[in-house]
């Protein structure tokens, strides 16, 4: 585990099928980190700022990583990313873009805005599960995490 004690992954995903599949892939891969889910960009921002219903950090702790879809209602993934990178401390939060798009426009834009990684969701579940496993190993176990709060 890491020195901050933060273990939560914030998943920003509007497609509930995908949320379920991701959770399944996590459990299949025996990833025990708690997953906080928000369905749109606005909620993601609110969660990170601790606004409104997300004010209670015990119930809604700061994540150590953000899994961000790009095509989101209200506030797109790129906009969330842009906002995040403008915050004084939160900007250090590692962000992994997880989306269906393989378009160069989306990829380039995401990296320009400061995404730490860009992953395309595979259709084949086995591959999806494998990807999540690798994600967990790399970001949760191998990488050191910055202070953000």
């Amino acid at each position: 585990m890491n020195r901050n004690g933060r273990t939560t992954i914030l998943l920003v995903e509007d497609d509930l099928n995908d949320v379920m599949l991701i959770k399944r892939a996590f459990s299949k891969s025996r990833i025990v980190n708690p997953i906080a889910c928000v369905e749109n960009g606005e909620d993601a921002v609110a969660y990170l700022r601790g606004d409104g219903k997300y004010a209670d950090r015990r119930q809604h702790p700061l994540p150590f990583m953000l899994l961000l879809d790009l095509k989101l209602p209200r506030l797109s993934g790129h906009e969330v990313l842009q906002w995040l990178r403008g915050q004084p401390l939160l900007k250090r939060l590692p962000v992994v873009v997880l989306t269906s798009s393989r378009e160069p426009v989306d990829i380039n834009r995401a990296y320009e805005l400061g995404a730490n990684s860009y992953l395309v969701k595979p259709v084949v579940f086995e591959e999806f599960a494998a990807l999540m496993r690798q994600l967990q190993v790399y970001w949760l176990m191998l990488s050191e995490h910055p202070d953000i709060g």
Binding site: D15, N17, L21, R24, T99, S100, S101, K121, V123, F125
Partner: peptide, 12 residues
């Protein structure tokens, strides 16, 4: 984006 999402769901 959109076609692959249901496909992913189907497959998943």
């Amino acid at each position: 984006h959109d076609l692959r999402a249901p496909l992913r769901a189907m497959h998943g």
